[in-house]
Protein backbone atom coordinates (compact mmCIF):
# COMPACT_ATOMS: atom_id res chain seq x y z
CA UNK A 1 0.00 0.00 0.00
CA UNK A 2 1.33 3.39 -0.90
CA UNK A 3 1.61 6.38 1.34
CA UNK A 4 -1.24 8.02 -0.51
CA UNK A 5 -3.84 5.44 0.39
CA UNK A 6 -2.65 5.44 3.95
CA UNK A 7 -3.06 9.10 4.50
CA UNK A 8 -6.42 10.44 5.36
CA UNK A 9 -8.28 13.56 4.77
CA UNK A 10 -11.53 15.18 5.46
CA UNK A 11 -12.84 18.64 5.12
CA UNK A 12 -14.26 20.44 8.09
CA UNK A 13 -17.86 19.09 8.10
CA UNK A 14 -16.72 15.46 7.95
CA UNK A 15 -14.30 16.04 10.74
CA UNK A 16 -17.04 17.24 12.99
CA UNK A 17 -19.14 14.24 12.08
CA UNK A 18 -16.21 11.95 12.75
CA UNK A 19 -15.49 13.43 16.12
CA UNK A 20 -19.13 13.19 17.02
CA UNK A 21 -19.16 9.51 16.13
CA UNK A 22 -16.15 8.49 18.12
CA UNK A 23 -17.60 8.63 21.62
CA UNK A 24 -20.46 6.48 20.42
CA UNK A 25 -17.90 3.91 19.47
CA UNK A 26 -16.45 3.98 22.94
CA UNK A 27 -19.83 3.42 24.48
CA UNK A 28 -20.33 0.56 22.08
CA UNK A 29 -23.47 2.14 20.76
CA UNK A 30 -22.26 2.62 17.22
CA UNK A 31 -24.88 0.98 15.02
CA UNK A 32 -23.45 -0.22 11.73
CA UNK A 33 -20.31 1.83 11.39
CA UNK A 34 -19.62 1.28 7.73
CA UNK A 35 -22.87 2.14 5.99
CA UNK A 36 -23.61 4.97 8.39
CA UNK A 37 -20.25 6.66 8.08
CA UNK A 38 -20.03 5.97 4.38
CA UNK A 39 -23.44 7.56 3.93
CA UNK A 40 -22.33 10.75 5.59
CA UNK A 41 -19.25 10.90 3.44
CA UNK A 42 -21.03 10.27 0.17
CA UNK A 43 -23.53 13.04 0.72
CA UNK A 44 -20.59 15.27 1.23
CA UNK A 45 -18.87 13.97 -1.87
CA UNK A 46 -21.97 14.74 -3.91
CA UNK A 47 -21.04 18.35 -3.54
CA UNK A 48 -17.76 17.82 -5.33
CA UNK A 49 -16.85 17.41 -8.96
CA UNK A 50 -15.71 13.77 -9.44
CA UNK A 51 -18.95 11.77 -8.99
CA UNK A 52 -21.00 13.81 -11.47
CA UNK A 53 -18.21 13.45 -14.00
CA UNK A 54 -18.30 9.67 -13.73
CA UNK A 55 -22.08 9.52 -14.03
CA UNK A 56 -21.88 11.62 -17.14
CA UNK A 57 -19.74 9.00 -18.86
CA UNK A 58 -22.27 6.21 -19.46
CA UNK A 59 -24.67 8.66 -21.02
CA UNK A 60 -22.24 9.55 -23.76
CA UNK A 61 -21.03 6.01 -24.44
CA UNK A 62 -24.57 4.70 -24.72
CA UNK A 63 -25.52 7.39 -27.20
CA UNK A 64 -25.03 4.91 -30.05
CA UNK A 65 -28.07 2.83 -29.00
CA UNK A 66 -30.42 2.65 -31.99
CA UNK A 67 -34.22 2.68 -32.34
CA UNK A 68 -36.85 5.22 -31.49
CA UNK A 69 -37.05 4.27 -27.82
CA UNK A 70 -33.45 5.32 -27.44
CA UNK A 71 -34.47 8.94 -27.62
CA UNK A 72 -36.87 8.61 -24.70
CA UNK A 73 -34.38 6.54 -22.76
CA UNK A 74 -31.64 9.02 -23.45
CA UNK A 75 -33.69 11.96 -22.29
CA UNK A 76 -34.45 10.02 -19.11
CA UNK A 77 -30.76 9.31 -18.63
CA UNK A 78 -29.95 12.94 -19.40
CA UNK A 79 -32.49 13.96 -16.82
CA UNK A 80 -30.83 11.85 -14.19
CA UNK A 81 -27.40 13.16 -15.09
CA UNK A 82 -28.64 16.72 -14.96
CA UNK A 83 -30.22 16.12 -11.61
CA UNK A 84 -26.99 14.77 -10.17
CA UNK A 85 -24.67 17.29 -11.81
CA UNK A 86 -26.72 20.43 -11.60
CA UNK A 87 -26.99 20.96 -7.82
CA UNK A 88 -23.26 20.60 -7.11
CA UNK A 89 -22.39 22.81 -10.07
CA UNK A 90 -24.87 25.40 -8.86
CA UNK A 91 -23.38 25.19 -5.40
CA UNK A 92 -19.90 25.82 -6.70
CA UNK A 93 -21.07 28.61 -8.98
CA UNK A 94 -22.88 30.28 -6.13
CA UNK A 95 -19.85 29.93 -3.89
CA UNK A 96 -17.53 31.44 -6.49
CA UNK A 97 -20.04 34.20 -7.18
CA UNK A 98 -20.28 35.17 -3.53
CA UNK A 99 -16.51 34.94 -3.22
CA UNK A 100 -16.14 37.19 -6.22
CA UNK A 101 -18.60 39.76 -4.90
CA UNK A 102 -17.14 39.69 -1.41
CA UNK A 103 -13.64 40.35 -2.69
CA UNK A 104 -14.83 43.05 -5.12
CA UNK A 105 -15.42 45.72 -2.53
CA UNK A 106 -12.46 45.80 -0.21
CA UNK A 107 -10.07 43.84 1.99
CA UNK A 108 -6.86 42.20 0.85
CA UNK A 109 -8.60 38.97 -0.10
CA UNK A 110 -7.85 37.80 -3.63
CA UNK A 111 -10.85 36.96 -5.83
CA UNK A 112 -11.45 33.78 -7.82
CA UNK A 113 -9.76 35.12 -10.95
CA UNK A 114 -6.57 36.14 -9.17
CA UNK A 115 -6.50 32.81 -7.33
CA UNK A 116 -6.99 30.90 -10.58
CA UNK A 117 -4.11 32.74 -12.19
CA UNK A 118 -1.86 32.12 -9.19
CA UNK A 119 -2.87 28.45 -9.24
CA UNK A 120 -1.98 27.93 -12.90
CA UNK A 121 1.42 29.49 -12.23
CA UNK A 122 1.87 27.36 -9.13
CA UNK A 123 0.87 24.06 -10.70
CA UNK A 124 2.99 24.68 -13.77
CA UNK A 125 5.90 23.46 -11.67
CA UNK A 126 4.74 21.77 -8.47
CA UNK A 127 8.01 19.85 -7.95
CA UNK A 128 10.78 22.44 -7.89
CA UNK A 129 13.40 22.71 -5.20
CA UNK A 130 15.18 25.93 -4.22
CA UNK A 131 16.68 24.96 -0.92
CA UNK A 132 14.93 23.51 2.14
CA UNK A 133 12.47 26.37 2.68
CA UNK A 134 11.39 26.93 -0.87
CA UNK A 135 9.96 23.84 -2.51
CA UNK A 136 7.05 23.20 -4.88
CA UNK A 137 3.59 22.57 -3.49
CA UNK A 138 3.82 18.97 -4.67
CA UNK A 139 6.78 18.30 -2.36
CA UNK A 140 4.97 19.96 0.51
CA UNK A 141 1.89 17.83 0.09
CA UNK A 142 3.97 14.69 -0.28
CA UNK A 143 5.99 15.30 2.83
CA UNK A 144 2.82 15.97 4.83
CA UNK A 145 1.38 12.74 3.49
CA UNK A 146 4.55 10.93 4.40
CA UNK A 147 4.39 12.19 7.96
CA UNK A 148 0.75 11.18 8.24
CA UNK A 149 1.61 7.80 6.74
CA UNK A 150 4.39 7.07 9.21
CA UNK A 151 2.54 8.27 12.30
CA UNK A 152 -0.54 6.50 11.19
CA UNK A 153 1.33 3.30 10.36
CA UNK A 154 2.81 3.13 13.85
CA UNK A 155 -0.61 3.84 15.32
CA UNK A 156 -2.08 0.94 13.35
CA UNK A 157 0.78 -1.31 14.40
CA UNK A 158 0.14 -0.57 18.07
CA UNK A 159 -3.57 0.22 18.05
CA UNK A 160 -5.01 -2.72 16.15
CA UNK A 161 -3.42 -5.48 18.26
CA UNK A 162 -4.25 -3.48 21.37
CA UNK A 163 -7.83 -3.17 20.17
CA UNK A 164 -8.01 -6.94 19.73
CA UNK A 165 -6.73 -7.52 23.25
CA UNK A 166 -9.03 -4.91 24.76
CA UNK A 167 -12.00 -6.32 22.86
CA UNK A 168 -11.32 -9.94 23.73
CA UNK A 169 -10.58 -9.65 27.44
CA UNK A 170 -13.01 -7.67 29.54
CA UNK A 171 -10.39 -7.18 32.23
CA UNK A 172 -8.21 -5.30 29.75
CA UNK A 173 -11.26 -3.40 28.59
CA UNK A 174 -12.03 -2.24 32.13
CA UNK A 175 -8.39 -1.38 32.64
CA UNK A 176 -7.80 0.63 29.48
CA UNK A 177 -11.21 2.22 28.90
CA UNK A 178 -11.05 4.96 31.55
CA UNK A 179 -7.58 5.92 30.38
CA UNK A 180 -8.70 6.21 26.77
CA UNK A 181 -11.78 8.19 27.81
CA UNK A 182 -9.51 10.61 29.60
CA UNK A 183 -6.90 11.03 26.88
CA UNK A 184 -9.04 10.87 23.76
CA UNK A 185 -10.63 14.33 24.07
CA UNK A 186 -7.22 15.99 24.42
CA UNK A 187 -6.15 17.86 21.31
CA UNK A 188 -3.22 16.00 19.75
CA UNK A 189 -1.38 19.32 19.54
CA UNK A 190 -1.09 19.31 23.31
CA UNK A 191 1.18 16.31 22.85
CA UNK A 192 3.47 18.18 20.47
CA UNK A 193 5.76 19.63 23.16
CA UNK A 194 6.17 16.16 24.67
CA UNK A 195 7.21 14.94 21.24
CA UNK A 196 9.67 17.81 20.84
CA UNK A 197 11.11 17.06 24.24
CA UNK A 198 11.51 13.35 23.65
CA UNK A 199 12.61 13.37 20.01
CA UNK A 200 14.54 16.66 20.08
CA UNK A 201 13.57 17.27 16.46
CA UNK A 202 10.56 18.84 14.79
CA UNK A 203 9.89 16.15 12.22
CA UNK A 204 9.40 13.14 14.51
CA UNK A 205 7.46 15.39 16.89
CA UNK A 206 4.91 16.11 14.16
CA UNK A 207 4.73 12.42 13.36
CA UNK A 208 4.22 11.75 17.05
CA UNK A 209 1.11 13.96 17.18
CA UNK A 210 -0.26 12.02 14.23
CA UNK A 211 0.42 8.79 16.09
CA UNK A 212 -1.43 10.07 19.16
CA UNK A 213 -4.49 11.28 17.31
CA UNK A 214 -4.71 8.15 15.15
CA UNK A 215 -4.41 5.59 17.85
CA UNK A 216 -7.66 6.20 19.77
CA UNK A 217 -10.14 5.54 16.98
CA UNK A 218 -8.05 2.55 15.98
CA UNK A 219 -8.15 0.94 19.43
CA UNK A 220 -11.77 1.80 20.06
CA UNK A 221 -13.17 0.64 16.76
CA UNK A 222 -11.17 -2.57 16.72
CA UNK A 223 -12.25 -3.34 20.29
CA UNK A 224 -15.90 -2.65 19.52
CA UNK A 225 -15.63 -4.84 16.43
CA UNK A 226 -14.22 -7.71 18.47
CA UNK A 227 -16.97 -7.35 21.05
CA UNK A 228 -19.59 -7.35 18.32
CA UNK A 229 -18.54 -10.55 16.59
CA UNK A 230 -21.84 -12.43 16.34
CA UNK A 231 -22.21 -15.21 18.88
CA UNK A 232 -23.19 -17.54 16.04
CA UNK A 233 -19.71 -17.35 14.56
CA UNK A 234 -18.11 -17.93 17.93
CA UNK A 235 -20.37 -20.91 18.46
CA UNK A 236 -19.13 -22.33 15.17
CA UNK A 237 -15.60 -21.88 16.46
CA UNK A 238 -16.48 -23.60 19.71
CA UNK A 239 -18.19 -26.56 18.06
CA UNK A 240 -15.20 -27.00 15.78
CA UNK A 241 -12.91 -26.42 18.79
CA UNK A 242 -10.68 -24.20 16.65
CA UNK A 243 -7.30 -23.13 17.97
CA UNK A 244 -6.95 -19.55 19.20
CA UNK A 245 -4.83 -18.80 16.13
CA UNK A 246 -7.54 -20.08 13.77
CA UNK A 247 -10.17 -18.19 15.72
CA UNK A 248 -8.23 -14.96 15.25
CA UNK A 249 -7.35 -15.46 11.59
CA UNK A 250 -10.50 -17.14 10.32
CA UNK A 251 -13.22 -15.61 12.45
CA UNK A 252 -12.21 -12.57 14.49
CA UNK A 253 -10.08 -10.81 11.89
CA UNK A 254 -12.55 -11.00 9.00
CA UNK A 255 -15.46 -10.14 11.29
CA UNK A 256 -13.64 -7.14 12.73
CA UNK A 257 -12.17 -5.87 9.45
CA UNK A 258 -15.06 -3.52 8.61
CA UNK A 259 -14.88 -1.97 12.07
CA UNK A 260 -11.12 -1.66 11.78
CA UNK A 261 -11.46 0.14 8.46
CA UNK A 262 -13.92 2.56 10.04
CA UNK A 263 -11.32 3.24 12.72
CA UNK A 264 -8.69 3.76 10.06
CA UNK A 265 -10.91 6.16 8.18
CA UNK A 266 -11.74 8.19 11.26
CA UNK A 267 -8.14 8.39 12.38
CA UNK A 268 -6.79 9.24 8.98
CA UNK A 269 -9.35 12.05 8.72
CA UNK A 270 -8.24 13.47 12.03
CA UNK A 271 -4.59 12.96 11.14
CA UNK A 272 -4.93 15.02 8.00
CA UNK A 273 -6.54 17.81 10.02
CA UNK A 274 -3.89 17.70 12.70
CA UNK A 275 -0.87 17.59 10.42
CA UNK A 276 -1.61 21.05 9.03
CA UNK A 277 -1.71 22.57 12.50
CA UNK A 278 1.31 20.61 13.69
CA UNK A 279 3.41 21.68 10.73
CA UNK A 280 2.50 25.31 11.29
CA UNK A 281 4.11 24.93 14.68
CA UNK A 282 7.10 22.81 13.74
CA UNK A 283 8.08 24.28 10.35
CA UNK A 284 10.12 22.36 7.79
CA UNK A 285 8.54 21.09 4.62
CA UNK A 286 4.82 20.34 4.53
CA UNK A 287 1.55 21.81 3.47
CA UNK A 288 0.87 23.27 6.93
CA UNK A 289 4.24 24.95 7.00
CA UNK A 290 3.71 26.14 3.46
CA UNK A 291 0.46 27.87 4.45
CA UNK A 292 2.26 29.66 7.25
CA UNK A 293 5.17 30.57 5.03
CA UNK A 294 2.89 32.06 2.39
CA UNK A 295 1.14 34.04 5.11
CA UNK A 296 4.52 35.49 6.08
CA UNK A 297 5.13 36.26 2.39
CA UNK A 298 1.61 37.75 2.26
CA UNK A 299 0.68 35.56 -0.70
CA UNK A 300 -2.94 35.14 0.28
CA UNK A 301 -3.87 33.51 -3.07
CA UNK A 302 -1.54 30.70 -2.20
CA UNK A 303 -3.24 30.19 1.14
CA UNK A 304 -6.58 29.87 -0.60
CA UNK A 305 -5.05 27.41 -3.05
CA UNK A 306 -3.63 25.47 -0.13
CA UNK A 307 -7.08 25.28 1.42
CA UNK A 308 -8.43 23.73 -1.76
CA UNK A 309 -5.48 21.36 -2.05
CA UNK A 310 -5.89 20.20 1.54
CA UNK A 311 -9.59 19.68 0.95
CA UNK A 312 -9.07 17.72 -2.25
CA UNK A 313 -6.34 15.50 -0.83
CA UNK A 314 -8.54 14.86 2.19
CA UNK A 315 -11.46 13.97 -0.01
CA UNK A 316 -9.36 11.60 -2.10
CA UNK A 317 -8.02 9.83 0.99
CA UNK A 318 -11.48 9.47 2.44
CA UNK A 319 -12.95 8.21 -0.82
CA UNK A 320 -10.20 5.68 -1.41
CA UNK A 321 -10.68 4.32 2.10
CA UNK A 322 -14.42 4.11 1.59
CA UNK A 323 -13.80 2.22 -1.64
CA UNK A 324 -11.41 -0.11 0.18
CA UNK A 325 -13.93 -0.65 2.97
CA UNK A 326 -16.62 -1.47 0.44
CA UNK A 327 -14.41 -4.08 -1.16
CA UNK A 328 -13.63 -5.67 2.20
CA UNK A 329 -17.15 -5.64 3.56
CA UNK A 330 -18.74 -9.03 3.24
CA UNK A 331 -22.47 -9.01 2.84
CA UNK A 332 -23.90 -10.41 6.03
CA UNK A 333 -26.04 -13.43 5.32
Amino acid sequence: MTATTLDATTDAPTKIAAVAREPEGLRMAMPRPLPDAAGAATTLAAGSAPPPASTALPATTDAAVPAATAAGKRSGRLDAVLRSVLPPLLGFALFIGIWHLATQSASGLPGPVQTWEAATALFADPFYRNGPNDQGIGWNVLSSLQRVGIGFGFAALVGIPLGFIVGRFSFMNDMVNPLISLLRPVSPLAWLPIGLLVFKKADPAATWTIFICSIWPMIINTAVGVQRVPQDYLNVARVLALSEWKIVTRILFPAVLPYMLTGIRLSIGTAWLVIVAAEMLTGGVGIGFWVWDEWNNLKVEHIIIAIFVIGIVGLLLEQSLIALARRCSHEST
Partner: peptide, 15 residues
Amino acid sequence: PERAVVFQNHSLLPW
Protein backbone atom coordinates in the same frame (compact mmCIF):
# COMPACT_ATOMS: atom_id res chain seq x y z
CA PRO B 1 -16.41 -31.70 16.65
CA GLU B 2 -17.68 -35.16 17.58
CA ARG B 3 -21.05 -33.52 18.22
CA ALA B 4 -21.66 -31.40 15.12
CA VAL B 5 -24.37 -28.77 15.18
CA VAL B 6 -26.52 -27.50 12.33
CA PHE B 7 -27.56 -24.13 13.65
CA GLN B 8 -31.06 -22.74 13.32
CA ASN B 9 -29.71 -19.95 11.10
CA HIS B 10 -27.02 -22.03 9.34
CA SER B 11 -24.19 -19.80 10.70
CA LEU B 12 -21.94 -19.98 7.67
CA LEU B 13 -19.00 -17.59 7.76
CA PRO B 14 -19.82 -14.97 5.14
CA TRP B 15 -16.19 -14.30 4.23
